[in-house]
Design a protein around this nucleic acid. Sequence first.
DNA 1: ATGCCGATGTCCT
DNA 2: GGACATCGGCATC
Length: 205
Amino acid sequence: MTANRKELGQSFYNRKDVVQIARQLLGKILVTQFDGVRTAGRIVETEAYAGENDRASHAYGGKRTARNEHLYGDPGTVYVYICYGLHHLFNVVTNKKNIPHAILIRALEPMEGIGYMLKRTGKPVADYTLTKGPGNLARAMGMSKMHTGGDLFSKEIFIEDDGTRYKKDQILATKRIGVEYAREDAELPYRFIIPSSPYVSAKKS
DNA sequence: ATGCCGATGTCCT
DNA sequence: GGACATCGGCATC
């Protein structure tokens, strides 16, 4: 238990502005604890997905399937899905139940359990690729589709605030990655990054 | 630095 | 059968 850290409660996630929440998740600490194995990292890249009216969202138009069901869950629900048949992508559900807002966590700076992250990913050394990008991050943190539908108030997966705050000029908003199909919504500045971090994925503008 | 490719679960036509 | 919220490896410039 590290001092001066507070777990984010449901009120943090139960708000209307998913874009603002995505920005505020920068600097927070994502923690997983499975069978006594603890890994943690500081969030340096996020993307907001604004639900039914967002062409890039899995819930666009109110679409509801077995895969995306938990997007419609309570604030603080965990939504993990398989992308391109092999990567597990970790999302945090926000806003009240039945409003399918979510935030994709795209990159972390590793803080705890780096040895376990190496074991999980099969990488030989800890470099910036360890938790860069949503697929790598989920693998390093031990998260998979089996965790979808859980919540961030368990002992297994949660997000903490240690008081870290980035200044405005340390944060950059860009368009989201890999959503060109979303027409005009592909241009929305819903991705937030800390450009100075080597763990940020893809290009920095 | 840039680009193509394969891996392949889930949903859609 | 095609598309997709990705990644790493290899080819080429």
